[in-house]
Amino acid sequence: MRLRPVHFVDAPFAYPDGAVVRLAGGLQWFAAYEISGEGPLRVVPVADVAGLGDRAALLHARFTSPRAPLALGERVLRLDQPQVAAILNVTPDSFSDGGAHRDDPAAAAAAGMAMAGAGAALIDVGGESTRPGAALVWEEDEARRVAPVVERLARAGALVSVDTRKAPVMEAALAAGAGIVNDVSALLWDERALDVVVRSGAPVILMHSPDPKAGGHGRVTYDDVVGEVFDWLEARVEAVVAAGVDRARVIVDPGIGFGKSLADNLALLNGLAMFHGLGCAVMLAASRKRLIGALSNEAPVEQRLGGSVALALKGAEAGVQLLRVHDVVETVQALRVWRGLRDRALVG
């Protein structure tokens, strides 16, 4: 059985007690669940979920439990509202901004601090491109790219995550001051990665990948892409929790653009709210991705700002806690306007 929150409402005041509930302690309220995974789709009011059995009760508890803030040294990452995670690539070949900060840690760190100053809560530093067909980067080269940038950012007071699938790079970045590990292979590419995360105590972002050992871009045919990605992530979360990582320090990412068709990506975006049923914070990383070009006359990467902001707001509407983006200033402004609308709705 899977549940997806539906029938979102502006505010709870006009409804009887128990008729609407808050999604993951955030700014969104909903009145019903769409039930899938056992016969035809059906919609059930949240007040009736108690009669659906133990699985539904577990999922309901996860949907309605607040996501605790992450205390990371002197910094705290709040998860009760949508936050921006800024993309900072120090690669020569990333699909959007590869080469912009190559071999210049000081300039890269300055760019990261500018994004933090513009409102990004997290700076996500990556030293290897994950675009389709990208060349594998030797782990020592990748560590040499990211560690000096991470060190400068952390020393300047920024909260930093490292975007890598390699255990030695994780170790180097964490030692340099990174607070979070972001792994597009969900800790499956490197056999040591899970142990590094467990020993460090760092929060981890687990992204869905149809072929994590091969880079994540193998095309898969899905019967129900939202349900199948949910099940895959649920299994990964359970495995990571069983290894010793606190569920409250796990963040999930449905992997938009990784081994998925346009129809698959759109289905995942429309079904984002389901992933709160994993009991973890959710990251959406759709900025400037191919699906935007596919829906807008093949717009090139540098002309996908409007679509990127639209998808960020779609994530906010679905209760997503972290939005990984290239265009920080514009996304932060859009979220501030969205937040103003939500605040007004919640005061009646």
Score class of each variant (00 low, 15 high):
Met115Lys: 15
Ile123Phe: 07
Ala109Ser: 14
His101Cys: 15
Ile123Val: 15
Ala110Gly: 08
Ala107Met: 14
Ala100Asn: 08
Ala134Leu: 01
Ala111Leu: 04
Ala110His: 11
Asp141Phe: 01
Gly119Met: 12
Thr130Arg: 11
Gly119Phe: 08
Ile123Lys: 09
Ala120Asn: 13
Ala116Ile: 05
Ala134Trp: 00
Leu122Glu: 07
Arg145Cys: 00
Gly133Arg: 05
Leu122Gly: 01
Ala111Ile: 07
Ala116Phe: 04
Glu139Thr: 09
Val125Arg: 03
Glu140Ile: 03
Ala134Pro: 09
Ala109Val: 09
Ala100Gly: 05
His101Ser: 14
Val137Glu: 03
Gly126Glu: 02
Thr130Phe: 07
Gly133Ala: 04
Arg145Gly: 00
Ala108Leu: 02
Ala114Lys: 12
Ala110Gln: 13
Ala121Arg: 07
Ala135Ile: 08
Ala108Gly: 06
Gly99His: 07
Ala143Ser: 08
Glu142Thr: 10
Ala118Ser: 14
Val125Thr: 03
Pro105Val: 01
Glu142Gly: 12
Arg144His: 00
Gly99Thr: 06
Asp104Cys: 06
Asp124Thr: 14
Gly99Asp: 06
Val125Phe: 05
Val137Ser: 11
Ala111Gln: 05
Leu136Arg: 15
Ala114Tyr: 05
Arg102Ile: 03
Thr130Asn: 09
Glu139His: 13
Arg102Thr: 06
Pro132Tyr: 00
Asp104Ser: 14
Met115Ile: 13
Arg102Trp: 15
Arg145Ser: 00
Asp104Ala: 07
Met115Glu: 13
Met113Trp: 03
Leu122Thr: 09
Asp141Leu: 03
Val125His: 02
Arg145Asn: 00
